[in-house]
Write a protein that binds this DNA or RNA. Structure first.
Lengths: 139, 139
DNA sequence: CGAAATTAAATTGCGCTTGATTTAATTTGA
DNA sequence: TCAAATTAAATCAAGCGCAATTTAATTTCG
């Protein structure tokens, strides 16, 4: 059992599957003019309405290097506003707009379409979900 | 059950775990001057010695847009050679060099170190592996 | 108090990733 | 045969991802 055989690695199928599923999302997200990263950002805002960049980054495992330009773009598109916090000017607060809220409707069907094309049983999906979160938690 | 809740998605933990594990690899790969993508490319060459770019891309789920610059860099580092096929000049053949072979030794320990820090049981790892390949196959 | 440390975003630089287009070689078929 | 279609890499543009640095605000503590 060669540890350097591609087929013996866990990371590689993770990396490939992740890219593959994002590629399933892409044509659906194109219709609402979002990239995958923009989409998961909007998902947080659909839940929370208003959140600081630091906390947002912790939810998404992304830092300001990725988020700053991405949030500026979403702001330009009118989906959110960016404002410095009054209490602590170091913090930038991101808040969803009406337009951003409205976009949620057009996104509702997307997850179901992707899950369908993944063809996993409910059990398999649950197992996968649980293993991935176990890994995530200890990182 | 909101389908647009981040925590209800399968793709997001896949995406996050994939990035997280690559981040475990990064400091180890830095010591042998490879990025993760360069590393999986070298893994194919450690197995096959010689392969066309198209087939290489099929193994790695990458296209010439990613591979062309990456292979040029690895060629500059002396780890492989790039030669047009005699039979069909459209094909570029990549072949590992002595130096490329030699690098394999320095990489042997890396997978074990990463797997260790993932803290999954053998069963869990096997289940995860199997689910990911099931997903990959139907994509 | 006020200098030093800490914190949050922004910026920079480099590399990956993909979609689309271009270029060149080969194959196909009217 | 030879023009049209196909194939393989290369190239280009746009965006992500991350490490490292910079800038500005706030906190800590001597």
């Amino acid at each position: 059992m060669d540890p350097l055989k591609l087929s013996n690695q866990l990371c590689f199928p993770l990396y490939a599957t992740s890219k593959g599923i994002i590629k399933l999302y892409t044509p659906l997200l194109n219709e609402i003019n979002l990239t995958y990263t923009q989409y998961i950002t909007m998902m947080v805002l659909w839940e929370q309405k208003k959140i600081g960049v630091k906390l947002l980054g912790e939810h998404l495992f992304l830092d300001s290097g990725t988020l700053t330009p991405l949030l500026k773009k979403l702001e330009q598109q009118g989906l959110l506003t960016r404002t410095r916090s009054q209490e602590d000017e170091r913090n930038l607060i991101v808040e969803i707009t009406e337009q951003g809220e409205a976009l949620k409707e057009r996104a509702t069907d997307i997850p179901a379409k992707v899950i369908e094309s993944m063809k996993l049983t409910d059990d398999e999906a649950a197992t996968l979900y649980q293993l991935l979160y176990k890994l995530l938690e200890q990182m």
